[in-house]
Write a protein that binds this DNA or RNA. Sequence first.
DNA 1: AATTATTTTTAGACTAATCTAAAAATAATT
DNA 2: AATTATTTTTAGATTAGTCTAAAAATAATT
Lengths: 217, 217
Amino acid sequence: MLTKTEENYIKEIFTIETITKKDVSTNSIAKKLDTKPSTVTDMLKKLATKKLLSYQKYKGVKLNNKGKTIALSVIRKHRLWETFLVKKLNFSWDEVHEIAEQLEHIKSDKLTNRLDQFLGFPTVDPHGDPIPNANGEFTKTKTICLTKLTINTESIFVEVKNASDKFLKYLSKNNIAIGSKIKILYIEEFDNSVDILVNNKQINVSESVAKNIYLNN
Amino acid sequence: MLTKTEENYIKEIFTIETITKKDVSTNSIAKKLDTKPSTVTDMLKKLATKKLLSYQKYKGVKLNNKGKTIALSVIRKHRLWETFLVKKLNFSWDEVHEIAEQLEHIKSDKLTNRLDQFLGFPTVDPHGDPIPNANGEFTKTKTICLTKLTINTESIFVEVKNASDKFLKYLSKNNIAIGSKIKILYIEEFDNSVDILVNNKQINVSESVAKNIYLNN
DNA sequence: AATTATTTTTAGACTAATCTAAAAATAATT
DNA sequence: AATTATTTTTAGATTAGTCTAAAAATAATT
């Protein structure tokens, strides 16, 4: 049985590994978990003896299958609870993370699976992140380009096609982030620019911007 | 901010205090929490310095108002989560305790109060125990033991005194649940066992069972 | 390639929660 | 009241998770 702390390390390593696709460094973990590298080293040794990851001095770590399974289970719980908080208890999607950080460590497979069922087996959480199923698999979510969305529908921004600095800067300047709920209002026939509602504010984005925004389908 | 362990001590002290109405002894706490008296002594000193209870060497402890408030908050969360598990996730009432032991330590007043609302502000949990409201008050309902009920009267089963796994299993095996209408038919003078009518079926329950069944008065 | 900078590990220490074993205080019983 | 039994506390250790400071390894830069 893993402690809460051990689960947090495993989860964080999984997340970093998924993004960087390289062995995970001690420092990167320390930064994310807001702890000291020496503390991380100690924990990595412990997790290695528990056979959840492979660790080589000075070379970083890599989760093995057992480690990945645990990471996915914690992530699954986190995202199911976030969904519960938003869908059933009417929390807004920006205030659920901290609570889900606590709830993700509740140990009961039966609870997790009943919650999943109660929520109707959702495949994405309120931020648009995929929810692994009971076997740790996510169903590849089909995404749709903003330019293809039906007028007046609302969806969650889940993916950027062009992740250039300039584009991401444009998005943050306009308060659009992965996870943002976007409602499409109107497509201007003259220049194919799009009127959207995001954070209760209406803005107009050009066709080249719209082409890079993908939403849940 | 209290740790999970500290909360468990406070909750247990509150429970013992409520039953015995005396200062709570080191040994009684140790037995309930399945730990050693020496460990309890250490914790009592700590909780005393945190001003949650008054502690006198060899004399036992007594919660102060701050301690009681914390105990009631934990109990409130425990009973709300049990209610959620039974009412919304279709758990049976004999399998919710362990999960609620974990959930009761989740820290978010907003979550607790939203959950309360989501459940329709219940006043009793699935075992018939009263749920303190957001201010730590419960609406005390008067109940009467099955052994004290007048022959041939009918009442609703609202509370169990002993919520042990074995007892709850016995009840569900015999189709007796919180909310069941029970009519008392006869008290056997020889062994004080009781003939009751429940779900239109007559059964006989032993004195020790009857003593743990409480009904509306 | 040598030097400098950065990253990672080691060594030693601290807090929370626990234990065992022994000592001290209190309660019960001759 | 003296003795015995029980309860409680103290003293000293242990494990998990953390820290600081110094040493060692690796990476970057002259």
